[in-house]
Simulated assay, not measured.
Amino acid sequence: MTSDGVADERRGGVRVIAPVRPRKLAKVPFVELSEGRLQGVVSSGSDVSRVYVSSITAGDHGLSCNTNNNRPCGGLSGSHACNHIRALVDAAVAQYGLERVARYLKAEGGDDLWAALHPTTAPSRAAEVFSSFLRHLSYLEVPPTTDPLPELHWFPAAGVVR
Rank of each mutant, 00 (worst) to 15 (best):
W154P: 00
R21W: 06
H80E: 05
K27V: 15
K27A: 10
D60E: 10
L88A: 04
A126I: 03
S44C: 14
N69K: 12
A122P: 12
V20N: 11
A7G: 14
A87N: 10
Q95S: 14
S124R: 03
I85D: 08
A58G: 02
L137C: 07
V31D: 08
S132Y: 11
A94I: 07
V16H: 02
D47M: 13
V41H: 08
V48D: 11
Y52P: 03
Y52C: 09
L105W: 03
L113K: 07
G75H: 13
A91P: 03
T146Y: 01
D4W: 14
L25N: 01
R103G: 08
E128W: 07
G75P: 05
A116L: 03
A18M: 05
V28M: 00
S131P: 00
L76K: 09
A127L: 09
V129Y: 02
G13L: 13
A127W: 01
T146R: 04
V93M: 01
R23M: 11
P148V: 07
G59E: 01
P123I: 06
E128L: 14
A58E: 03
G13E: 12
N68I: 11
K106P: 00
V6D: 09
F133H: 12
G59T: 00
S64R: 06
D111I: 01
L149A: 04
G45S: 15
Y104L: 04
R103I: 08
D4E: 14
F30I: 12
V41F: 13
G159L: 12
S55Y: 03
R10G: 15
N66L: 06
A7V: 02
R162T: 11
A18Q: 09
G97I: 07
R86P: 00
A92W: 07
N70L: 15
P150C: 06
L113S: 05
V20A: 14
P22I: 11
T67W: 02
A158D: 07
L38K: 04
R11L: 12
Y96I: 13
L76N: 08
T2F: 02
N66D: 11
D147G: 08
W114G: 00
G74Q: 13
Y139T: 06
D60W: 03
V142I: 12
E99C: 06
E35C: 02
L113C: 05
S43L: 12
T120Y: 01
V6L: 11
N70R: 11
A81T: 11
V6E: 14
Y139G: 13
L140R: 10
